[in-house]
Design a protein around this nucleic acid. Structure first.
Lengths: 342, 342
DNA sequence: TTGAAAGCGCTAACAA
DNA sequence: TTGTTAGCGCTTTCAA
């Protein structure tokens, strides 16, 4: 037999009707099957090496067994572990992941979601390109469940799973204050990301009064943007003794700006980042940063989606997983007495 | 209309038969359609917001429009850019990627391939867990085309796309020799990977005679394995003045072992890596390494698969893309006169 | 050039 | 408990 076996072949071999064979192979469905019959069918299926055709099954059941995963940039080290967590968890439940990389482009995000829906995916996990994505917002109340990871979208009202950035940033800010820093700059990420707002709010909340931070927004979460922003801060606010960066890439940009300015870290300026991406513990100096539970975020997002697929109604709209401040060599007490400029 | 429009709805609206509507929407097929009719159908489709159901189409055409991408570990920084390149290229051709992460486990690799085939994927792009994967070997001469990326499988005879590691390693080795190093150690990767063999062979070819290298295999491409291997080398061969590492993670392990031993890089020992992974240019010292064209490898692999899908017969079984030696601060001339021990 | 009809492989409602 | 029948939405032969 050249073509692959169908349910008909199995039924013939077991001497039953295709419908019966189908039921025998898909238990727990309406219409119990006598054990001897079921066993005969299973044997026939095994002998033939039968695997149900997912396409035909999908057409009939209107379930594709496919979940769409939309990410802004697979190259961003935060995302692969998350995708991995999603993928493993879903795969274990018999769901396959179609992954789409939008390259941080809203247009491509729209195309990806449309394409995914055309392919009848049953659910979506999305790390959106921007916090005001119309595409994502349109998903709310749609016919398939969607879960946002890492990046929330304003007013979408969708399930959201991420690390508890606020707590992490708060710990980082408090750490700097405890070291004795009084002039702290915060290099926020790009305005179009929800993470930027979350982290910035946490900083503002944690550094009140005397230690009111200098805040500068970076155009992107990149080394170059961080370097530019840090240059500005060092020029305009020479009394700053600590810089809290929106993420690790930005923090590395700060390292570069400090080197350019002939300043040393942490002797002259302390620096802290966010994400604890690979190798930041090997930098000179090793970077103090906020570690986020990447794989767990992926797993939690997948679980949340599975709950949505089962029709469970929003048990928890927001799931924030614990983050952890990792203190390394880039933060130290300010060298100069408080209040004194360099 | 609650349900999504079918070809029937389009046909009704255009006042034609479904078969005609189908042909009008899929041009270049047998049976030309009169332009006015075609135009009417297209308008109707547009007005209804019709998108063909990929499931039904698949069932009929026996083409799923899905390609399987199997990777050993999405967390390995080499892979995401490759996956991205594959995914973008394929997506542009209307093919979607089902991504499976095998966690470097042969068993899971087998399961993933089986599952992917059950889902009727039309082709596979695989970075195999090991160079002797029976699963991958079984794919040769199978009914769907498969392309190997980065990691080859012995005797599989499948299309293979990767960076030209041999040339890269050769350049690195020659660089060390040119600097004046005469005792060079090579810390090879795990034996079960084809990259290990390729790179090692290149080293052996490049360092003949007097500079015959000390070779040690690492249990894995990790920092810890690199550290262990380097410790051994430093103890057993104190005259070694340069260490070429199987990849960047191993090189970082070497950095650690040197620090433990109170040796400095590059003053006491030069170190070079492979892959040019993110941030190795920010290490202390910045790592000399071989850069591989990651995204391009992904694109090339996808193109190769597309060729296979079109039935083009093996235009080029092996595609090796140019690598580039990036010289940074971790390599320098040996401090001690040649032949003299530290 | 278009219509008619069949069927991809499966499952679910209904009947026996 | 099992068989019968119909049909998911599409494409593609065959006829007209």
């Amino acid at each position: 037999m050249a073509r692959r076996p169908t349910i008909r072949d199995v039924a013939d071999r077991a001497g039953v009707h295709p419908g019966t064979a189908s039921r025998a192979l898909n238990p727990a469905h309406p219409g119990r099957i006598a054990e001897p019959t079921a066993s005969r069918v299973r044997t026939a299926a095994r002998e033939l090496g039968y695997t149900p055709d997912p396409t035909a099954r999908s057409l009939r059941t209107r379930r594709s067994g496919i979940v769409g995963v939309v990410v802004p940039d697979l190259t961003n080290p935060v995302l692969p572990p998350i995708v991995r967590g999603i993928e493993e968890t879903l795969w274990r439940e018999g769901l396959a992941c179609l992954v789409a990389d939008t390259d941080n482009d809203v247009e491509r995000e729209a195309v990806a979601v449309r394409e995914l829906q055309a392919r009848r995916c049953e659910g979506l996990v999305i790390a959106s390109a921007t916090r005001d994505s119309a595409t994502v917002r349109a998903l709310a109340g749609g016919d398939i469940p969607a879960v946002l990871v890492t990046r929330d979208v304003d007013g979408a009202g969708l399930a959201f799973v991420a690390g508890d950035d606020a707590a992490g940033v708060e710990a980082a800010a408090r750490h700097l204050v405890d070291l004795g820093h009084e002039r702290i700059a915060y290099l926020a990420g790009p305005r179009e990301l929800s993470t930027t707002a979350t982290r910035l709010a946490a900083v503002r909340r944690t550094l009140p009064g005397a230690t009111t931070p200098v805040v500068v927004f970076c155009a992107a979460y990149t080394i170059a943007a961080g370097r530019r922003a840090a240059r500005g801060v060092l020029t305009d606010h020479p009394d700053v003794t600590a810089i809290l960066a929106g993420n690790d890439m930005v923090a590395i940009g700060v390292y570069e700006a400090l080197a350019e300015a002939g300043l040393r870290c942490p002797a002259d300026v302390s620096v802290a980042g966010h994400n604890d991406m690979p190798l930041v513990d090997k930098l000179a100096p090793p970077l103090t940063t906020v570690a986020i539970p990447r794989a767990e975020i992926g797993v939690a997002a997948a679980r949340r989606l599975l709950a949505g697929l089962r029709g469970e109604d929003e048990p928890a709209r927001r799931t924030l997983l614990p983050t952890r401040l990792v203190v390394r060599g880039s933060t130290a007490p300010p060298r100069t007495p408080a209040g004194q400029s360099r």
